[in-house]
């Protein structure tokens, strides 16, 4: 007589089970529905948008291939300015954000002013629109009549970005510090580690790793906000696109600038999502 257990095991490894067949059918069905509805929406857009009365004008002023070809290299070059501003702001933001976060965590009573400063700092700079800070610092400080190069809008514009983004990074790092379970601090204390060593060797490395995806999203936002510096002078990509627009009386350069931003931000956002997803999976 055949052993029923063995028969069951063999069926499991060879032919698909009833459940697997059922699930495969469900998957095929939902795949077909998703593809169909997507095609429908795209078809509608392609069909109906050109029927709008102003479509021809929009196409000429926003999607002009010739203007695009002519201005794109210049835009790319201007984007290097954005990248450069980002590259010198990012480390300063990370450092200042860390310092502010640590200020808010000090326990010693003598250092209470630091704590107060940290709280005040994050409240003020998270409470202001970035563009306002860029204006205030970018126009205000050079207005003091400083000698060259200290009146450069690059310096003061960058400082504005650093100040604002450090406040956000500080809050993210602080939430990371709070997320480390108190038992980790207990374990470190029980080994005789000082509070400073506990923070440096036990809490911070874990905290910073935990909030890496959140910080990454902040830095993606920073790359976009570099364009705000165009208001106070630096000819970066947004400003350059504006120059082309005036020259050629055409908005296509803005579309080109948008594409260049997306080429950087979409992969970066996807990567941050991937990091977050990996972290969730590891913690579950």
């Amino acid at each position: 007589m055949p052993n029923p257990d063995q028969g069951g095991a063999a069926a499991l490894s060879a032919a698909p089970t009833r459940r697997e067949i059922h699930e495969a059918r469900l998957r095929r069905r939902s795949g077909a529905i998703a593809a169909g509805s997507t095609l429908l929406v795209i078809g509608a857009i392609v069909l109906f948008v050109p029927m709008a009365p102003g479509w021809e004008a929009v196409r000429r002023s926003f999607f002009n291939a010739e203007v695009f070809r002519k201005t794109f290299p210049g835009l790319l070059e201007a984007f290097l300015v954005d990248v450069a501003i980002f590259l010198w702001c990012a480390p300063a933001i990370a450092l200042l954000g860390l310092v502010i976060a640590l200020c808010r965590d000090v326990r010693a009573p003598a250092l209470f002013p630091l704590r107060l400063f940290g709280a005040l700092y994050t409240d003020v700079f998270r409470g202001l629109p970035v563009v306002l800070v860029v204006y205030l610092i970018g126009f205000g400080v050079p207005g003091l009549g400083l000698p060259r190069p200290w009146n450069s809008p690059y310096i003061w514009g960058s400082l504005a970005l650093i100040l604002v983004y450090a406040a956000y990074v500080a809050e993210v790092i602080r939430s990371g510090i709070d997320s480390i379970h108190v038992s980790q601090r207990s374990a470190a204390a029980s080994l005789g580690l000082s509070e400073a060593d506990t923070m440096r060797y036990v809490v911070l490395p874990q905290a910073i790793r935990n909030v890496a995806p959140a910080n990454m999203n902040l830095f993606i936002a920073l790359q976009k906000d570099v364009a705000l510096l165009s208001f106070i002078g630096p000819v970066e990509i947004f400003r350059q696109a504006g120059v082309y627009k005036s020259l050629l009386a055409n908005f296509t350069p803005y579309v080109g600038a948008a594409l260049i931003f997306l080429a950087i931000t979409i992969p970066a956002t996807r990567y941050a999502d991937y990091l977050l997803h990996r972290q969730r999976r590891r913690q579950s």
Binding site: S183, Q184, S186, A187, A188, S190, Y201, V202, Q206
Partner: peptide, 8 residues
């Protein structure tokens, strides 16, 4: 400790 509390 009961829960080890190693530094992960």
């Amino acid at each position: 400790f009961q829960s080890f509390n190693l530094f992960p």
